[in-house]
């Protein structure tokens, strides 16, 4: 009698497991309904373009920048970005001085202070490849050298050559041509 109870219980449990796993395959929503996703999640870190917080935000303001949504960043931080840019690269303080994109300090920091990545849906996606400017960010893009060139390289990318390239041009492992694109871990 006791044995039968165990048998039937086991059979019942197995049947429900089988039913559940069928369900799993049929419908993602059924699965997620069984998992707890409740609650409120509050912004702690954020990023659009590489190195923006690190380079342009003063040390006492970095947490505040991370807690500010992009649509409010320009009003709060553009003037700080401009002051820090002129501190880093004093040529920008001269009236009329521009980077190779034709931007003076106000225009350049006006772009950067809203920390979002612009991505085209129409073709090549690259941070900068000599032709396309800010159409995305691919894994192999040498974004730091591009940023250094825009900060230190002047109107023709030729000023301050020892500051405008870190001379690390690629990753330490090859990227994959197919999904998931990133190289396997060390």
């Amino acid at each position: 009698m006791k044995n039968n109870f165990i048998k039937y219980t086991a059979a019942f449990l197995m049947a429900s497991f089988t039913l559940m796993s069928c369900n799993n395959k049929d419908n993602d929503l059924e699965v997620t309904a069984m998992v707890d996703f409740s609650g409120t999640f509050v912004m702690k870190d954020q990023m659009g373009r590489p190195a923006v917080n690190t380079v342009f935000v003063s040390s006492g303001k970095k947490d505040e920048f991370n807690a500010t949504i992009p649509s409010e960043q320009n009003a709060k931080f553009q003037s700080m970005f401009e002051a820090n840019l002129k501190g880093l690269s004093p040529a920008f303080a001269n009236s009329g001085d521009k980077n190779a994109l034709g931007q003076d300090a106000a225009a350049f920091t006006g772009l950067l202070a809203t920390d979002v990545l612009n991505v085209t849906l129409d073709g090549k996606t690259t941070f900068y490849d000599g032709t396309n400017v800010l159409t995305g960010r691919a894994l192999a893009d040498d974004v730091i050298t591009v940023e250094l060139l825009l900060i230190f390289g002047g109107e023709d990318f030729k000023e301050n050559p020892t500051l405008s390239d870190d001379n690390v041009d690629g990753n330490d492992k090859d990227f994959l041509t197919s999904f998931p694109y990133l190289a396997s871990p060390w």
Partner: peptide, 22 residues
């Protein structure tokens, strides 16, 4: 890039290191 970019995220599980879109 964004690795340990600010005091309150550094060393936590919520520290974003990088972002790409292509």
């Amino acid at each position: 890039a964004d690795h340990i970019d600010a005091p309150s995220t550094t060393g936590t599980s919520a520290d974003i290191t990088d972002f790409y879109a292509f």
